[in-house]
Amino acid sequence: MSTNQEVALLAEMAVFAKVVEAGSFSGAARLMGSTPSATSRAVARLEKALGTRLLLRTTRKLRLSESGRDVYAGCLDMVQAAQAVMASAGSYDEVPRGQVRVSVPKAVGRFVLHPHMPEFLRRYPEVDVQLRLDDRPLDLIEEGMDLAIRITDQPPPGLMGRPLLEITHMLCATPHYLECHGTPQHPRDLKQHSCIYLGEAPADARWKFARGGKSVSVTVQGRYAANHTGVRLDAALNHLGIASLPDFTARESLQAGELIRVLPDWSFRTNYSGQAWILYPPTRHLPPKLRVLMTFLAERLG
């Protein structure tokens, strides 16, 4: 492709980036003050020039093709580079503004992020935040999210990130429950107790522990299971049994003496334990609205 052709396609590249951001031709057209047909034609010209299909069109939504992902990353860099050039000339407002869309696991969103959002919104009055509380796997680009928080060993391929906080799980019960039913001294003792567990799959009732290089796995049972930590917390506070809870969910009740940690000398292992990272698409030019939110969360949660 010649330099002249590349320059001629800059507008189409910017339109394509906007279509991906908006999730539809009509949405992008509204943002740009154009029409859906003109927007669709711009993307078609870019696809023809590159010789590849960038978007997979279905009746419900647009999806990026494999090549479309790479092209979008480049187009996004181009748009943000243009913004950086304007900023250096004083033509672009560096005040953080606009909406930030954040995907976060349900419990982390409710108990960890949400309590800090009022302060963030007061500090940055021109930034809006949309939280999507969802535990399922996520494609940031395809679903139009700016940031995601996930528990992972390291950022997945194609994403950048920074660690936020360590999440651990523990077992808790009320003093009343333990007085009535006894306090387990070993994971095997849990078989004699009513346990409040996740309940989404049979494996959720198989609790795993480690201590001093030894591992123990116990199949627990109980009359109540719930796939929301807030519900399991409330069930434990109502003396229904021994609940598995993230540390951030149980913290206040433990400090108030409403709950007691069970088997504190054992490490309780779950898929929901580990390092929580804030993830974002790779880019050399992070918009101010994303930069300030990431910095804020790192300060509050790190």
Rank of each mutant, 00 (worst) to 15 (best):
A225Y: 12
A226K: 00
Q255S: 14
R269D: 11
R206T: 11
S273E: 14
G230Y: 06
T283G: 03
N238A: 03
G241I: 14
W266R: 11
N227W: 08
K214D: 00
P184F: 04
P281W: 00
L259V: 12
S273D: 09
R223C: 15
G241E: 08
C195Y: 09
F248V: 11
A203M: 14
L198C: 12
N238E: 02
H239I: 10
S244M: 14
E258K: 05
D234H: 15
Y272R: 07
T229V: 08
G230D: 04
S273V: 11
R188D: 13
W207L: 14
N271E: 11
S253M: 09
S215E: 14
T219W: 03
Q255N: 08
R211D: 06
I242R: 07
Q275T: 15
L237T: 06
I260E: 12
G257L: 02
S194H: 12
K214Y: 01
W266Y: 14
S217I: 11
R223G: 15
W266F: 13
R261M: 12
A250Q: 13
H228P: 02
L245T: 05
R211M: 12
Q192P: 01
D189S: 05
P187W: 04
E200W: 09
G212Y: 14
G182E: 15
V231F: 04
A203L: 07
Q185D: 15
K214G: 08
V231H: 12
Y197Q: 00
A210S: 15
D265Q: 14
A236Y: 00
R261T: 08
R211Y: 11
H186N: 09
F248E: 09
P281K: 02
Y197W: 10
Q275H: 04
A235D: 07
T183D: 14
A235S: 14
N238T: 02
Y280P: 12
V220K: 13
R261I: 01
D189A: 08
K191F: 01
V220Q: 14
S217Y: 01
L233F: 02
R251M: 06
A243C: 04
V262N: 06
A203Y: 05
G212C: 08
N271G: 11
N271C: 10
L279E: 09
T270P: 08
T249Q: 09
H193V: 10
R223N: 07
I242K: 06
G230E: 01
W277R: 00
R188M: 09
A250C: 11
L254A: 03
R211I: 02
L237W: 05
T249C: 01
E200N: 06
R261H: 04
E252C: 01
A276R: 06
A226E: 00
S215G: 03
H186I: 06
G241L: 13
G222F: 12
P246V: 08
T183K: 13
S215N: 05
G230H: 07
K214T: 15
D234M: 13
T219A: 06
W207I: 10
G182H: 12
L254D: 02
P246I: 05
V220W: 09
T229E: 14
W207R: 13
F248R: 00
A203H: 07
S244W: 08
I242F: 03
A201F: 10
H193R: 10
A236L: 00
L190T: 04
S244T: 15
E258L: 13
R269W: 04
Q255P: 05
A203C: 10
S194L: 07
G257T: 10
A276E: 04
T229F: 00
R232K: 13
A226S: 03
H228V: 02
V218Y: 00
P187C: 10
S267Y: 10
R232E: 01
